[in-house]
Amino acid sequence: MKYCYPTTINHSVASLCPNVLENINSLAVREGFMTGAPLFPQMEIVINMDDVEAHNAYLVPRKQVRSMDLAFAISSQDKRTKEMVLVDLKLNVGPSLSSILKDELVEKIVESRKTLGNEVKIHGQYIFIFQTNLVEQARRLFFKWNPRLDGENTSMDMDRLKSTYF
């Protein structure tokens, strides 16, 4: 399944919260991705989940909780199957992974799932993006946290995110 623009921009979260749709390049650069030319020349639009959470917390009002950084929709070739992919950008982490806490990641996933609701099925893998030289270490860390097969947390770098979903 690959990126699906209409499902992304028409998700109710994006419709209800103003200004949460953003070009993935600018969001990634703000979160620490360093690149010369934009990695995504098509300027694909994603939902900024931090902005969604800020908006929702303001409306209630309540204290903000942790959330994944972005979400976008993917669909099968025939457009019948659609899912929302949750992504968190860990590009500023380093030099080691010691600052990554399991509870914080779990909170991000749980809260972002609540935010997206059941409107579109949520993709089974939660994606965490690292600088390339930390991807395998993160994979090991996730396996240590939750040594189950096909664990839900997947580590990859930006290039792999692009090749997998775009």
Binding site: L134, V135, E136, Q137, R139, R140, L149
Partner: peptide, 20 residues
């Protein structure tokens, strides 16, 4: 850099998936 070494260690995770 140690990530390539972790890539090698992580083959074990793939094997668990394969055999588990």
């Amino acid at each position: 850099e140690i990530d390539p070494i972790f890539g090698s260690f992580n083959i074990a995770i793939d094997r668990i998936k394969l055999y588990g």
